[in-house]
């Protein structure tokens, strides 16, 4: 490990459900990671700009509005434009089962559904960060 893992936790779209995002942010912080939380109602543009500027190892996106199939593809387009497509992206929220493989196809590295044990989450983020750092 070359440095502390830096994670951007981002809420995109209009929904205000931040309970999960905050629990995740705090859990990762307690696990020794640096957390940048965007706050609510962010656009994909704002999220990608923040990810690039903050030089994060992982982007965690939370949304419970059902708009993931519209907004997540946009994130990948913008990451590519910014030359930051090597940053792994994880998505959490209310995601219908059928959409999980679709998100994976887009390039989402992990989809965290409700009731993911917090310890599993920490482990997975560490793996994602390591995969990027070893590239």
């Amino acid at each position: 490990m070359t440095h502390r893992i830096r994670v951007l936790i981002a809420k995109i779209g209009l929904d205000g459900h931040d309970r999960g995002a905050k629990v995740v942010a705090r859990t990762l912080r307690d696990a020794g990671m640096d957390i940048i939380y965007t706050g609510l109602h962010r656009t994909p543009e704002e999220v990608v700009t923040a990810a690039a500027q903050e030089d994060v190892d992982v982007i965690g996106i939370s949304l419970l509005s059902g708009a993931h199939m519209t907004l997540v593809p946009r994130i990948f387009e913008l990451l590519k434009e910014a030359g930051a497509e090597d940053i792994p992206v994880a998505v959490g929220g209310v995601i219908p089962d059928d959409d999980v493989p679709r998100l994976r196809e887009l390039g989402v590295a992990s989809v965290f559904l409700q009731d993911t044990p917090l310890d599993d989450l920490v482990k997975r983020i560490q793996e994602l960060a390591a995969s990027r750092q070893s590239r």
């Binding site: 779209g13 209009l14 929904d15 109602h41 656009t43 509005s65 059902g66 708009a67 199939m69 907004l71």
Partner: peptide, 22 residues
Amino acid sequence: DMPTLMGYDSDDPRSLGEVGRE
């Protein structure tokens, strides 16, 4: 839906993907 709750019309760019969903 979220755009109505937040005061955006359905044709606002911020509403993309959220119209009539929640």
